[in-house]
Each structure stands twice: as structure tokens, then as C-alpha cells.
């Protein structure tokens, strides 16, 4: 008898003597029922999950584009300039400028630009009264110096923003 045939016969013979224990049926059945319950329970859950994902997909981009109002990073909110004679429209103009800057500058440049602009705007807010009039004398000598420095530091950025804006 060839070994192939012998192996086949032997395994068949052995298999016939191996019986799945009957109590295993109960266990597999319980698992099955668990699966069925899970499946039934899952379908409304699935819908909710889907709705959640859809909502997140819609919200995330709008949050990414709308929420970090660039001007908010500098002023906190439009209230800061409205107290000093500015309007919501002015705020939008500033926002527009910042958005342009963001588009024209590299990421690192823009970071630096925002930092400097923020400092400059803080000083400007300080010298501007409720009617929008400027009083340089409100600043200390040191602050006046800083004000000028900021102006010159920002100049190359402005050139870059405006230069490429008008090719």
C-alpha cells in the first residue's frame, strides 16, 4: 500500500472516531445568538454612527476654515476695535488683509508676520481713543521705539504681500 493511500485511510479512520462533543453545540449557539442580537442592535447604532460621521465631515472643514478667524488671533474679537471707533466692516478688511498675507507668505513667514502684527496692533489699540484718534504720547519711550521697530520689521512682509499682489 502506498503511503498516500495509507495516510488517507488512517486519517479517515481516525476522523470517524473523533466526535464533536455535544455540549459544544450549546456554546456555539449562545455565541450565535449573541451575534444575532449584536447585529440587530447594531443597525440603528450604525445609522447613528453614520450620521455622526457625516456631521463630523461637514463640521470639520467649516470649523477649519471659519473658526480661526485670523483677526481674532490678534484682537480677540471685533469688540476690541469697535470700542475704538472701528466697525465690523473694518474688522473684515483687516481679516481680508491677513488672509491675503496667509496666502502669499510661507508658513514660517506668516507666523512671524502674525506675531509682529499682533504686537503692533496692541500698541495701536493703546494709542487709539474711543473716536479713533491717535495719541502717540500715550506710549512710553520704550514702546515708541518698539512701535518703530515693528514697522520696519514688517515692511519686507508688506512688500512681499503687496508686491506679489500686483504683479
Amino acid at each position: 500500500m502506498s503511503i498516500d493511500k495509507e495516510l488517507r485511510e488512517e486519517l479517515r479512520h481516525m476522523a470517524d472516531s473523533m466526535h464533536c462533543p455535544p455540549d459544544l453545540y450549546g456554546r456555539v449557539r449562545r455565541s450565535y445568538q449573541h451575534y444575532v442580537n449584536e447585529k440587530r442592535g447594531r443597525s440603528p447604532m450604525k445609522k447613528r454612527m453614520l450620521a455622526g460621521i457625516v456631521a463630523a465631515v461637514i463640521l470639520i472643514p467649516s470649523a477649519a476654515f471659519a473658526s480661526p478667524y485670523l483677526a481674532d488671533a490678534i484682537f480677540g474679537s471685533s469688540a476690541a476695535i469697535e470700542q475704538r471707533g472701528g466697525t465690523k466692516e473694518d474688522y473684515q478688511v483687516i481679516e481680508g488683509m491677513l488672509q491675503t498675507a496667509k496666502g502669499k507668505l510661507t508658513e514660517d513667514e506668516f507666523k512671524e508676520y502674525m506675531k509682529l502684527t499682533k504686537q503692533l496692533m496692541q500698541l495701536k489699540l493703546k494709542i487709539t481713543d474711543q473716536n479713533g484718534n491717535k495719541h502717540m504720547d500715550k506710549l512710553t519711550n520704550e514702546e515708541q521705539k518698539q512701535f518703530e521697530q515693528l514697522g520696519s520689521k514688517l515692511a519686507p512682509y508688506f512688500e512681499k504681500i503687496n508686491g506679489t499682489a500686483k504683479p
Binding site: 476522523a15 473523533m18 464533536c20 455565541s31 450565535y32
Partner: peptide, 26 residues
């Protein structure tokens, strides 16, 4: 079930493990 059980029992020898695996197969 006999086919699944026998296949597993040919390859794994611990009784408890065999039953766990058969259950998992289903």
C-alpha cells in the same frame, strides 16, 4: 461541525483550546 471539529482536533491537542477555536470558527 464534525468537519470543523476534526480539522481543529487534528491540529490542536488541548480539548479546551479545540472547543474555543471551533466556537471562533462559527
Amino acid at each position: 461541525h464534525q468537519d470543523v471539529y476534526r480539522t481543529v482536533a487534528f491540529l490542536v491537542y488541548n480539548k479546551q483550546d479545540i472547543e474555543d477555536i471551533v466556537n471562533e470558527v462559527y
